[in-house]
Design a protein around this nucleic acid. Structure first.
Length: 457
DNA sequence: TACTGCGGGTGGT
DNA sequence: ACCACCCGCAGTA
């Protein structure tokens, strides 16, 4: 069995192999990266063939298959994130960011549904498209060889992370049900959800997925930096639960303006560092009332026309259509649902606050290709050590440099290392005549990254 | 019902 | 030529 090592362990002092997903031949590697489902920025990774997540081309981002007419390279493009058209805020200051359905039909059904946030005034769900790659959606590329699975991401997501895939899956899996009552039940269900994820779908962990089994850890139901908090107020009423995660400044962010909210702007993605997760809180799922299952995706099943624009009707203003209202619901359910998506989707992202918290920290994403900010803007300088690791650096596994073996679409062939493809910045989607421009920008940003990083060390 | 991968096809650059 | 994107199909869960 191949012993997998994290890149952090092996990158130091090692030459960086250069390859591009489109290279005719890709290097054969002996060490692999740890799987991360939240890759952001221009990232290259190599996973072992046995890595289940890699085999499934898993991603925390909502990636849909894109036909690139290349049977050897699977291409996926980011669908963005489902947000509230009113950019409403939860009590903790964060915003709604759900996972868009991959299926076009299902995604269209999602759009136009009332924002599940009861505190939202007339907001409706809409897809915030990803424009993180030169104005186009971030793309992921997967390429399989006999000995490795190559992954390459192009572009930096300019939107918050959607809820993790597991959240929506679990909601679906849990099936129809009714309501939850009270915080204890909410918490218990959170635990049950995580338990379900870890037991029923062990290969679909939402947190930092590490291919090495001994490194696999369950996602925290409550982020580490919140775990110490205990309160008895409900998630929507609670004003303390999430506070430690977000500095006060986050709440001083200017109110969202429709004019300037065409997008969230450049999103500073967190590094996918492997958190040291404390033991899970344990709740016995068996204690959950079987008929009390909350069914959040009901909001996507509402039989109402899809609205591409979101006119705010008077009645809407007076009585905002919310999930609770539409379902004769009480507050805790929706609170829980949002809490749920935060807990599930935020298992890793909770390591870093959702970027919408930062308000003016966002940059306008209108500049062509300028949202490719490397490094990500430091919203929390004090946590720079956490944010700056390898995720947005050009990374690659260590190769055997002595006897390079290359694959030509699966064919194994020996090759001199001098023939290695160099990183020629064609990973930028610029047309060929714009590559140099992109390269200059990339170079500048890369140097910026290194300088900033070295200062932090 | 939705996810996923595949592939034909279209339109823009 | 390359790109994003649309659509339908089939297999799967």
């Amino acid at each position: 069995m191949v012993i997998l090592t994290s890149r952090a362990d092996m990158s130091e002092g090692q030459p960086t192999p250069e390859w591009d997903i489109n290279d005719a031949v890709v290097p054969r590697v002996t060490s692999f990266d740890t799987f991360s489902e939240w890759c952001d920025g221009h990232v290259r990774r190599v996973y072992p063939p046995a890595c289940e997540e890699a085999r499934r081309h898993a991603s925390g981002w909502a990636m849909r298959n894109t036909n690139n007419h290349n049977v050897h390279i699977l291409k996926k493009s980011c669908l963005g994130v489902l947000v509230c058209s009113a950019r409403c805020r939860l009590p903790d200051g964060s915003r709604v960011h759900l996972r868009p359905a991959i299926c076009d039909k299902a995604r269209k059904k999602q759009q136009g549904k009332p924002c599940p946030n009861r505190m939202c005034n007339g907001g409706r769900l809409e897809v915030q498209p990803c424009r993180g790659h030169c104005g186009y959606p971030v793309t992921h590329f997967w390429r399989h060889t006999e000995h490795a699975i190559f992954f390459q991401a192009k572009g930096a997501h300019d939107h918050p992370r959607p809820e993790a895939k597991g959240a929506s899956e679990v909601r679906r899996t849990l099936g129809a049900g009714r309501r939850v009552r009270g915080l204890a039940l909410l918490l218990a269900r959170e635990a049950a959800i995580a338990d379900k994820i870890l037991t029923v779908k062990p290969d679909k962990q939402m947190s930092q997925n590490i291919c090495t089994p001994h490194q696999k850890q369950p996602p925290p139901l409550i982020p580490d930096n919140q775990r110490g908090l205990t309160c008895t107020c409900g998630p929507f009423e609670c004003s303390c639960r999430w506070r430690t995660e977000h500095p006060t400044e986050a709440y001083a962010a200017p109110a969202w303006s429709p004019v300037e909210a065409q997008g969230y702007g450049a999103y500073a993605p967190p590094a996918s560092s492997v958190p040291n997760l404390p033991p899970q809180q344990h709740y016995d799922p068996a204690t959950l009332p079987a008929d009390d299952i909350f069914h959040p995706e009901e909001i996507f099943q509402l039989d109402q026309p899809i609205r591409l624009d979101f006119p705010i009707e008077e009645t809407t203003l007076e009585s905002p259509p919310t999930f609770a209202d539409l379902n004769d619901n009480s507050r805790p359910e929706e609170a829980y649902w949002l809490d749920w998506q935060r807990a599930a989707g935020g298992s890793e992202s909770s390591e870093t606050p959702s970027p919408e918290l930062f308000g003016n920290g966002y940059q306008q994403a209108d500049a062509y290709c300028e949202q490719q900010t490397y490094p990500p803007q430091m919203y929390y300088p004090e946590e720079a050590h956490q944010y700056y690791p390898v995720e947005n650096t050009r990374t690659s596994p260590v190769m055997q440099m002595q006897e390079q073996r290359y694959y030509r679409y699966g064919q194994d062939c020996g090759q001199n290392s001098m023939d290695m493809q160099s990183w020629n910045y064609t990973d930028c989607a610029f047309p060929s005549n714009d590559v140099s421009e992109c390269k200059q920008y990339y170079d500048a940003q890369h140097h910026q990254t290194m300088n900033a990083f070295s200062e932090l060390l």
